[in-house]
Amino acid sequence: MRQIANDVKTGNFNRIYLLYGDEIYLKNSWKNRIIDKLRRPGDTLNYRVFSGQSIDVAELISLADTMPFMAERRLIMVEGSGLFKKSAPDELVDFIKNVPDETCLCFVEDEVDKRSKLYKAVKSADGCIEELSQLEESEIKLWAAKKFTKFNKKIRGTTVQKIIDRVGTDLQSLDSELDKLISYVGDREIVDDEDVEAICTVHLNNTVFDLVNATISGEQKKAMELYYEMIANKEPPLKILFLIAREFKALLETKELMKTTRDRKFIAGKVGRPPFVIGRYEAIVSKFSSGYLSGVINDCLEMEQGVKTGKISDRLSVELIIVKYSGAERRTEK
């Protein structure tokens, strides 16, 4: 169990929290749980939020060093300050060592430098440091399963996988779709594949990945069906073309990074995809050269230019890419 989970459960909160990482949903979830536990409804005297990279550090320290008014704790949230990426003021670093027991100081950041004085000060003061990064697929499945259990629903692992395949791995989107699904099944205990197909929205990025994979696997019919499905859903062809190019760019970046490292978490951070998606990318890029992947990207850019200059229709531009790279132009590395 995470330390923060134990703190929320027991109500024994630390003086300092540092929540950071690229999973916005988890950061907001834990931040809100702390607020719900420590802030009394309507209490504006003992709760303050400092936001952005231009916060008044002197005011922050003064407030954090002030006894709470008719309450056990004073809660101060510091969001997106960037103080853990740059040289934080010495007075703040020194204050971290002496945060009063009556104060709960919570930092919520995107990135931190673990070599920074402020990070080391929080660690030295036994603050609770939680890295909240994108989850692995197995962790997402467990998270989803727990939500269904909370609402007394049962679901097979294959059905959870179907949800992820349709919706994607963004926890905010998943949470919303799971709420819809739970509401849809009503009093029924079992959630099945038919429910997922009936109510869960297919995320565009997932469809684009399937289209790209079908194309380079030579499954032209499947790729075209996915494309026409997106068109039927009112997705603009130029947007689809852009997303196809972006997907191939991510594949190319993965291939280049794999030349120097096999650390999926590192590659995921560079490419901007969850680690388990990088695992899927690895299986794909091993079959194709960097030149091939670059060629697809360049062709997409040329098609986009052709559409903008009126030389080709937007709908046809994507069709030509699919036909070209699902047919004779497909080539694997030797």
Rank of each mutant, 00 (worst) to 15 (best):
M77W: 06
V78L: 10
S81A: 13
S81V: 11
S81G: 13
S81T: 13
G82P: 08
G82Q: 10
L83P: 01
L83V: 00
L83F: 02
F84C: 02
F84I: 04
K86C: 08
S87C: 12
S87M: 12
A88T: 06
P89M: 05
P89C: 09
P89Q: 09
E91R: 10
E91A: 07
E91S: 09
L92F: 11
V93W: 08
D94N: 14
D94C: 09
D94S: 15
F95E: 05
F95D: 12
I96C: 12
K97E: 11
K97A: 11
K97V: 04
N98Y: 14
N98D: 14
V99A: 10
V99I: 12
P100N: 11
P100G: 08
D101Y: 11
E102G: 11
E102Q: 15
E102W: 14
E102C: 13
E102M: 14
T103N: 12
T103L: 10
T103I: 13
C104I: 07
C104S: 13
C104A: 11
C104W: 04
L105D: 05
L105R: 09
L105H: 00
C106W: 03
C106R: 06
C106P: 07
F107L: 02
F107H: 01
V108A: 00
V108S: 04
V108G: 06
E109Q: 02
E109K: 08
E109P: 00
D110T: 13
V112M: 07
V112I: 09
D113W: 08
D113I: 06
D113H: 06
D113S: 13
K114D: 05
K114T: 06
K114M: 09
K114A: 05
K114W: 01
R115H: 02
R115P: 06
R115F: 04
S116E: 08
K117L: 05
L118H: 00
L118E: 05
L118C: 03
L118K: 02
L118G: 05
Y119M: 07
Y119C: 04
K120S: 04
A121M: 08
A121R: 05
A121I: 01
A121C: 08
K123N: 13
S124K: 14
S124C: 01
S124A: 13
A125S: 12
A125Y: 01
A125H: 03
A125W: 04
D126W: 02
G127W: 02
C128G: 03
I129W: 00
I129Y: 04
I129N: 03
E130N: 09
E131V: 06
L132H: 01
S133P: 06
S133T: 14
L135Q: 08
E136Q: 15
E137G: 10
S138I: 15
S138G: 15
S138K: 15
